[in-house]
C-alpha cells in the first residue's frame, strides 16, 4: 500500500500530471531500460524483453484525476470553476479542495443545496476578503481537486481518493518491481488526460504501436448498496475486462489471462462495465491494431471522495501482470 498511498497523495488533474510523472519516474528508474516523456506528458518506461523476436506489450494506467479549473473570480471573491472529467457532485459538495500550489479552499454549491448539479452552480471559497485578494492568489486556468486521502477501513478494505487511477499506476510499478524475467518488450506507459477522453493514450499507443495491450483502471462493482446489477464484487480478484462502453476486448487475450490466473492460482473474475470507457480502446485501434484488454480493480463509489477497494484485488492484479510479463507472448496461441 505504501507505493499506492504515495501516488494518491500527489496532485495531478487531467492536463497537469507532471508531478505524478516525476514521482513514478523516480520509482521506475531501477527497473527499466529507458524513460521518456512525449508531447502530451505521457511517461513511457521501456524494458527490453529477453525473448527472441519479443512481442511489444503496452501496459497503460492513467496518471490524471478528475478536478476543477478556475474560470474566473466573482465580485465577492468566490472562485468560479469548470469541471475536468466526470465530477461526482454529491460527493464534491462541501469538500476541501487543494490547488496545484498547495493553496486550500472549500468547494460549495451556491445558495441552498438542491439537486441541480453542475459546475456552474459550484464555487470555491478560499477565505479571501475581496475579489482582489483572491486574484492575487489564484489565476484563471489554475487546477484544483478535492483533497486526496487514504483510509484503512478494516481487513482488506481501503477508502479514499483518487484510487482512479493511481491504483492502476501502482499496479504497473509493483509489477515492474516483482517480475523476475521480462520476456516481452514491455512499455509501461503512464498516460495523461484519460478522464477527458483518453487523449494521452491515443498519442502514446500511436508511437508504441503495440502487438498486445493491457490497460489498468478501476471498474464498478455490483455489491454496493442498491448498486446496478454487475457480476463483479470486491475481494473476488483481478477483473479481466471483456467489454465496456468503449471497447470489446480481444477474446483470445481475455481467455489467455483467465487461464493464466487459474494456472497461477490468482483470483480473477470477468468484467463487463456497462457505463464507462478506458484507455483500452485507444490501444486496440492504434496503427494496424493490437490485441487489447484491461485488468480492473473493482471499486465502489467511483469518482467520489471515498472510492473503496479491496487490497486483495489490487494484489491479484499485480501478481497476474507480473506473470504475464514473464510469459513470451510470441510463443502463445490466441
Amino acid at each position: 500500500m505504501k507505493i499506492l498511498k504515495e501516488l494518491m497523495l500527489v496532485h495531478g488533474v487531467s492536463g497537469r500530471e507532471s508531478r505524478v510523472a516525476d514521482k513514478i519516474a523516480e520509482m521506475m528508474t531501477p527497473y527499466v531500460d529507458s524513460i521518456t516523456r512525449d508531447a502530451l506528458g505521457n511517461l513511457i518506461c521501456y524494458k527490453k524483453g529477453s525473448a527472441k523476436n519479443a512481442k511489444k506489450l503496452m501496459l497503460a494506467g492513467h496518471m490524471d484525476e478528475i478536478g476543477f479549473i478556475v474560470t474566473g473570480v466573482d465580485d465577492k471573491g468566490y472562485i468560479r470553476v469548470s469541471s475536468i472529467g466526470g465530477i461526482h457532485y454529491v460527493s464534491a459538495a462541501y469538500s476541501a479542495v487543494r490547488f496545484e500550489n498547495g493553496l486550500r479552499g472549500v468547494i460549495v454549491p451556491e445558495g441552498d443545496f438542491n439537486n441541480n448539479f453542475s459546475s456552474s452552480k459550484f464555487v470555491i471559497d478560499i477565505g479571501a476578503k475581496s475579489k482582489k485578494e483572491t486574484e492575487r492568489r489564484v489565476k484563471v486556468g489554475d487546477f484544483a481537486s478535492t483533497v486526496s486521502h487514504v483510509e484503512h477501513l478494516s481487513g482488506e478494505y481501503w477508502a479514499g481518493r483518487p484510487f482512479d487511477d493511481r491504483i492502476g499506476c501502482a499496479i504497473m510499478v509493483r509489477a515492474a518491481m516483482e517480475m523476475k524475467d521480462c520476456k516481452n518488450d514491455a512499455y509501461f506507459v503512464f498516460t495523461t488526460q484519460e478522464e477527458v477522453g483518453c487523449r494521452g493514450s491515443k498519442t502514446a499507443s500511436f508511437a508504441v504501436a503495440p502487438d498486445f495491450s493491457l490497460a489498468f483502471d478501476v471498474t464498478g462493482s455490483g455489491d454496493g448498496p442498491k448498486a446496478s446489477p454487475m457480476a463483479v464484487s470486491l475481494g473476488k480478484g483481478a477483473a479481466i475486462k471483456v467489454k465496456d462502453s468503449s471497447v470489446i476486448c480481444d477474446g483470445g487475450f481475455v481467455r489467455f489471462l483467465d487461464e493464466l490466473a487459474k494456472e497461477k492460482k490468482i483470483p480473477a473474475q470477468l468484467e463487463i462495465l456497462e457505463g464507462g470507457g478506458t484507455d483500452t480502446c485507444s490501444m486496440q485501434t492504434a496503427g494496424c491494431g493490437s490485441r487489447a484488454t484491461a485488468l480492473s480493480v473493482p471499486t465502489r463509489y467511483i469518482h467520489s471522495n471515498n472510492e473503496t477497494i479491496s487490497k486483495k484485488d489490487y494484489d491479484a492484479c499485480v501478481a497476474l501482470t507480473a506473470a504475464l510479463l514473464e510469459r513470451d507472448l510470441g510463443k502463445e496461441r490466441f
Binding site: 468503449s246 471497447v247 470489446i248 480502446c281 486496440q284 485501434t285 496503427g287 494496424c288 491494431g289
Partner: peptide, 16 residues
C-alpha cells in the same frame, strides 16, 4: 469488425 459497436476494425484493417 465492430462496425456495429466501436468501429475498431475499419481503421486498423485499412491501415494494413
Amino acid at each position: 469488425s465492430q462496425e456495429e459497436s466501436f468501429g475498431a476494425g475499419f481503421p486498423t484493417g485499412a491501415a494494413a
